[in-house]
């Protein structure tokens, strides 16, 4: 269930029931060297697949969007979910209302926008699509699957 606006820190929307990771993230490079890191932050130019050997120990992956028009983070998110990552996948940075529904579909379950977003607008945005055409890891039945039982 959606839990609007009750999370601590800068996370505005979170779709998880577990406790948020309580320490800061490290870079992808540092994560590969530091065997105890449990939270990491992916920049647009990072290869998300570098993290695949460490997914078991990661509780949080932040994906940074320095500019909302740079869509590399959407692929990073899907790659992590496709690899079975079940921890928190948090979009951070230049996020707007109109990116939320697609980000959610790509596997993000927490959102920390640079500027707080209007809660009503966001609720509407998360509910934009009653049904969807594409299959992702969010397990929603696609329109094509609904058509064919």
């Amino acid at each position: 269930m959606t839990d609007f606006g009750t999370s601590p820190d800068e996370v505005q929307f979170r779709f998880r029931d577990d406790e948020p990771a309580d320490h800061g993230t490290v870079t992808v490079d540092a994560c590969c060297d530091q065997t105890n890191a449990t939270a990491v932050r992916i920049e647009p130019g990072d290869d998300a697949r570098t993290l695949l050997p460490f997914l078991d120990r990661l509780a949080l992956v932040e994906v940074n969007f320095p500019s909302f028009g740079d869509g590399r983070g959407y692929s990073s998110a899907r790659i992590l979910r496709e690899a079975g990552f079940t921890g928190e996948l948090r979009a951070v940075g230049d996020l707007g209302i109109d990116q939320l529904s697609h980000m959610r579909r790509c596997g993000f379950d927490a959102f920390a926008p640079d500027k707080l977003l209007d809660e009503e607008d966001a609720a509407r945005a998360f509910a934009t699509w009653d049904n969807v055409y594409q299959s992702t890891t969010d397990d929603r039945k696609t329109i094509q699957e609904l058509r064919h039982g």
Binding site: F68, G69, G71, Y74, Q99, Y133, Q134, T136
Partner: peptide, 13 residues
């Protein structure tokens, strides 16, 4: 057409 309409991963290419 269906696949490419509102594709969540490929909206900010």
């Amino acid at each position: 057409r269906q696949w490419s309409s509102f594709h969540p991963e490929f909206t900010y290419l």
